[in-house]
Amino acid sequence: MIEALFFYLFAGVMLASGFMVVVSRNPVYSVLFLILAFFNAAGMFVLIGAEFLAMLLVVVYVGAVAVLFLFVVMMLDINFAEMRAGFQKYLPLGLIVGGILVFELVAAMYGDAFSKASLPVASEVPNTTQLGGVLYTKYAFLFQISGLILLVAMIGAISLTMRKRVGVRRQSIADQNSRRREDVMEIVKMPSDKTKAKDDAAAGSVDDK
């Protein structure tokens, strides 16, 4: 009973916030509603007993990806009127894509994909262990490949944004630490007798006054 209550709460808030992501006038609100949707998805994961996936969803999507979204969206200078002008033009395309997704989901629901048999079986072993058990044995290669794809994406992003500018003074801590006293400092022996100091004073140095 309570579980069902929570399911409808999470599902309802998720759908509502998903809708708000699309219709919000302010893109910052869109991202904030997206975060709310992520949260409710995590709550649904907890309800079916997949606590590891729930935490991962929060750590990866809410804690990292959405922060960067928010970061970018907040700094954008968007003309809202211009953005809404394209609405009519893109509506058919959006409806087609949405229609295909709904069709696929319904087809999967009445097919075998969501049958009870594929639901996780509650067991004593925590699902973190279970996930690790298949991820590093049965799907080890797929796991490695997805890691490699991410690595390529990362290197791509770095090589796209990295630029060498001339005339920028950069701090090189290794250089700073490897400086030795002999390279940068010279001890000069100065005569310290009084006659010389007196000569300087007589020559009218202002320092004394």
Binding site: E51, F52, M55, L56, V58, V59, G63, N127, T128
Partner: peptide, 11 residues
């Protein structure tokens, strides 16, 4: 006392 306590804290 949840199974993924440390992940929860991290999240």
């Amino acid at each position: 006392d949840i199974n993924v306590g440390i992940l929860y804290l991290f999240a």
